[in-house]
């Protein structure tokens, strides 16, 4: 997000996450809306929409991680869903096969995923651009086959009966309780990601992305920054993977596909590279597109086969990515900024 045009009186206010009365009002409205949303949705018919929201929240957490690796540090990752897979599988193995309590298993799984992220980054930090993409692609393929062959991971059938979390006496089982739990988790992740973006570490990521030579000239440890980006990014992915598995109570090899990795990349492109809000917007946009397509085909207004509706999702997602990269390469965030500017300056043009 560019704040260059309007500087605040002091630096503290300038870098504050939420600025001014308007910011706090918007936040309050957003908060009330997100809290009331499932109550409104449950009036309609079934829990379908709450389930949809839960998957959207989980995807937001995952994509925030990719935004750090690719959007902020500039390392193209085609293996992001493999981090979710790693987190999910380790969680399932620890919780169901080895009998760890939920929170300890979750903690260890997230930590393990972040360590795997560093492991993947080790070859990737010596290379640039597409070579990083290929390394992460190789990581995806390798980890997929490892989990498929591991007998403790249940082979091609995967693992089921993964427990859900409980906070004190509260057991999180129903979709609505999951919604509030994930909402809280997502909020924490968003705040963490936004804080990272304005910290020394986050800014070193941006410097590395924009020009590695300049960055090292400024005293930034370039390989170190990339390692940190992969660590933090896969940490987010690990969190998403752990709770994804726990939410659907099972993990299987086709749960996290290469296509998910590709759509995650598409989401940060559509939202806007490098910004936390952009990641959220991108996820919301593509998730809504998918759900709308699903609704159209499910309602039977247009007679389409199931197969065709899946094909349609692929084509529309692909087309959305192409249109955004061709015409709005800075994503929805840039569109929003532009709207805001022209609203403020009306009736004068840009």
């Amino acid at each position: 997000m560019k704040r260059g045009s309007r500087r605040q009186a002091d630096y503290g206010r300038d870098v504050a996450l939420i600025g001014g009365l308007r910011g706090w009002t918007a936040l309050a409205v957003l908060l009330v809306a997100t809290v009331v949303l499932p109550q409104l949705l449950s009036v309609t018919d079934n829990m379908k929409w709450v389930t949809f929201l839960n998957f959207t929240l989980l995807t937001i957490i995952a994509v925030l991680g990719l935004q750090i690796i690719t959007g902020m540090a500039g390392q193209i990752s085609l293996g992001h869903s493999a981090f979710l897979m790693t987190g999910g599988y380790i969680m399932a193995i620890l919780a169901t096969k080895l009998g760890f309590p939920f929170w300890i298993a979750a903690f260890l799984a997230v930590l393990a995923t972040a360590s795997v992220g560093v492991l993947v980054a080790l070859p990737a930090i010596r290379l640039k651009g597409f070579y990083v993409a290929v390394v992460t692609l190789a990581f995806f393929t390798i980890s997929q086959h490892i989990f498929q062959n591991l007998s403790i991971a249940g082979g091609i059938w995967g693992l089921s009966n993964v427990p859900g979390p409980s906070v004190g006496p509260l057991k999180i089982i129903t979709d609505t309780s999951w919604y509030y739990f994930l909402l809280l988790l997502t909020a924490i992740c968003i705040i963490a990601s936004a804080s990272l973006a304005r910290s020394r570490i986050g800014r070193s990521f941006l410097a590395v992305r924009d020009n590695e030579v300049t960055a090292s000239g400024l005293g930034i440890n370039v390989p170190g920054a990339k390692l940190r980006a992969f660590f933090i990014g896969s940490l987010f992915a690990g969190i998403a993977g752990v709770f994804w598995t726990s939410y659907v109570t099972a993990v299987r090899i086709d749960q996290f596909s290469l296509w998910d990795s590709i759509w995650y990349l598409g989401m940060i492109i559509i939202g806007g590279l490098g910004s936390t809000a952009g990641a959220v917007l991108g996820v919301l946009f593509l998730q809504l597109v998918r759900q709308v397509l699903h609704e159209i085909t499910a309602s039977g207004v247009v007679p389409l086969s199931i197969n065709f509706s899946a094909a349609l999702t692929f084509a529309v997602y692909g087309l959305a990515i192409i249109l955004f990269i061709a015409f709005r390469p800075h994503g929805l965030m840039a569109v929003w900024q532009k709207l805001k500017t022209s609203y403020k300056r009306w009736p004068f043009g840009e």
Binding site: I262, L265, G266, I269, N307, F308, A310, A311, L312, T313, F314, A315, V316, Y317, G318, L319, A320, I321, I322, I325, A326
Partner: peptide, 15 residues
């Protein structure tokens, strides 16, 4: 990134 989008479009077409 554009070729990633193309990947989705072609996949949808073939399917």
């Amino acid at each position: 990134v554009a070729s990633l989008g193309l990947l989705g479009v072609l996949q949808g077409l073939v399917m």
